[in-house]
Design a protein around this nucleic acid. Structure first.
Lengths: 206, 206
DNA sequence: CTCAAATACGAGCGGTCGCCCGTGTTCGTC
DNA sequence: GACGAACACGGGCGACCGCTCGTATTTGAG
């Protein structure tokens, strides 16, 4: 439906699309979606407005492509972190480390991703592109919890996964905003919160 | 400084200001700040654009007044919840109940308040009006923690307060979005998360 | 009752935005 | 080397935005 009717792209064109996405991500992160004009995106990407519209039918499509792009990168970066095998061999601390650390790394190296995916300053379609990611993350966390604590009911497990993901998301902005020792301290605090929430449910000890 | 040079308002005028604020809150909650036009606010409030600008010098002033208004209501609603007296007499569960329940009530009865105060889709001045609230809440939570767990260092206490507030804020949207038993279940889960985070620090037992 | 102040109106100004289109240029293919 | 498709340009259109202003009406104080 929203399929943009595949146009044969040349290498030049694909590079320009990447340029547009880079410029858009930077500007969205700086000023938000609404405050960023398409002319500004084109200028930052080093092209004319007309050229920009050769690759995207409208502004919203840029946001959607950007969301999809980030979602893919995130998925790729975290596929290993959610491996449900050997989940019972690890201590809960180790398990939390394995899931939190890559998330922090990704969010640090992609500032503005949060600004895009978590912001209400967005057209509806863009949220639609982000929701599958959130659901996917929650599902995978639920799968890990299922492997770890099989005694939980499905409802309890899903609820615990949702709450865990929200806690992580809530701590991400301050973690990304600082560096070094401060970041490590905040990350440690996030892990303490997760541990405190999950440990009472856990049957496999510390 | 931003003091709008007190104009003698008649009762009619004060009512109109309230109408404008109501309309703006509803529209901001529905569509966000940027997507809401001043003409739309005026129309929803049942007046002409010219009349609206009799009471507010510009759009940002509306957002600021709205923020201040909500902040005041929130402060009033929570002043009792943060009473640091008798903090040591309560169990940690009771203490958490006392602080979480009024917050949930307020957020339920003021949907869109979050949309305003937590959104990046806002002029800088509006964030400036919301930050004092957040800081005030964190400070008061820190004061309660101080009374409850005096052994904590200042840095640890402030950190714990910040994390606690973030956890509460993170769970608020889904809590507000549902009703009845579901809402109670989510609220209970929030309290479990808070308890799990704070209990390990607490010296006064369950 | 009078009158200045407060309130109310709404057409429309100046500006910006998303986007189009006419035109010219570069690329891949044969 | 020729040719069509992809790419590139940028002036500017139409719509809408925040906001103004000239004017008309209502209010409360004296």
């Amino acid at each position: 439906m929203t399929q943009p009717r595949a146009v044969k792209r040349q290498a030049r064109g694909r590079q320009r699309i990447a340029d547009i996405l880079d410029a858009a991500l930077a500007l969205f992160a700086e000023n938000g979606y609404e405050r960023t004009s398409t002319n500004a995106i084109a200028a930052r990407a080093g092209m004319s407005p007309g050229s920009l519209y050769q690759f995207f039918p409208n502004k919203e499509a840029i946001a959607e492509a950007l969301s999809t792009h980030l979602v893919e990168q995130m998925r790729a970066a975290h596929s290993s972190a959610f491996d449900p095998s050997r989940v019972t061999d690890l201590t809960l601390h180790e398990l939390i480390d394995r899931m939190v650390d890559p998330l922090v790394t990704f969010n640090v190296s992609h500032p503005g991703a949060k600004a895009l995916l978590a912001n209400t300053d967005m057209p509806a379609g863009t949220h639609g592109a982000a929701r599958p990611l959130h659901e996917a993350v929650v599902d995978r966390v639920a799968a890990v919890i299922q492997a770890r604590i099989p005694t939980l009911s499905a409802a309890e497990r899903d609820l615990a996964a949702m709450v865990s993901v929200r806690i992580v998301a809530a701590m991400m902005p301050p973690i990304v905003a600082v560096e070094g020792a401060e970041r490590r301290a905040l990350t440690a605090e996030l892990k303490k919160a997760l541990y405190g929430y999950i440990a009472p449910l856990d049957s496999a000890g510390s």
